[in-house]
Amino acid sequence: MRKQDFLEALDDALHEREFSKVERKDIVEDYQAIIEEAIERGEEETEFIQKLGSVKEIVRQLKRSQQRPKSSREKWIAVSPFMALIVFFLLGFGWDLWHPAWLSFLGIPITAIALETKGKERLLALSPLVITVTFILIGTFSGLWDPFWSLYVLVFAFGLAASKAPWLRHTSVIPVISVAGYIGLFYLYPQLSWWVTMLVFLPVLPLVFFSGVIQVHYGGLPATWLDFFKTKTFWVSLLLLVTTSAVYAVLVWVSGMYHPTWLVFLAIPVGVLLYGRLVRKEDIPLVAFMPFIALLVFFLVGHFLDGYAYSWLAFLAIPIVAILTNQD
């Protein structure tokens, strides 16, 4: 059997045994890499594939290794929706704190991410949710929505800190300094115009843009910088950045509303993800779009329909989509 036939048979067998799309892609890609490396080391293709054993046996072994008792972390994840509901009703009925008690529901994706991911990946995935909780708690109890909305910029710091390239990791300090600078200027020089204080974020946007493109396109670093500029991802992202900045400037000029106009910038990560899914045919799961969609719905419905009381429900779409698509 040749490599391509083997990989197709493997994919079919995995599909038959109900492995998820993500698992199938990962396993088939692993076996492709194994066979390619074996050939590179001088092994004969068909002989090596024969040595790997029958596709059915491979899949049977994989299925068996999956069937293990639920680990304690899986139990905690399963129990988290019920705990969130208890906290929500206790704070709501007990102290009439329905808001911000709804934040307990963010504990569901937070628990899943905290227990299912690790290291820097965990920090990065947790950061938007933890920042949302912090921002809403500060805003609710002290009314300081501004300047503390700037905490969202720290998501970029976590993104940069999670980068594989050391030089990119070092730059994670820039968004932190920008946020500290913005909050500092807000209190020390309240007479300064908003546009002037916003200048502290100027270095963040290009930095995030370049690191984002590098991460999405290469998963690491390009071989040469020339390769980087040759990629379509670079030009698509640049177009998105320029377009959204222009749309933002026009909308602010016309409406005078900085909030929720800033949401147009969500088009950058969503656009890059869409480009990956539709054009580059990458296996980007639907759930990857959900945090952005949820944030958009939350602020739009909350702001324009005065519906913050129920727009938070949009965040529940994240675990719901993850469960329904089985790609969490």
Binding site: K51, G53, E57, Q61, L62, R64, S65
Partner: peptide
């Protein structure tokens, strides 16, 4: 030992 046994263990 067969490769079939090692790969699932890596994943686990």
């Amino acid at each position: 030992i067969n490769e079939n046994t090692v790969y699932p263990l890596l994943r686990r």
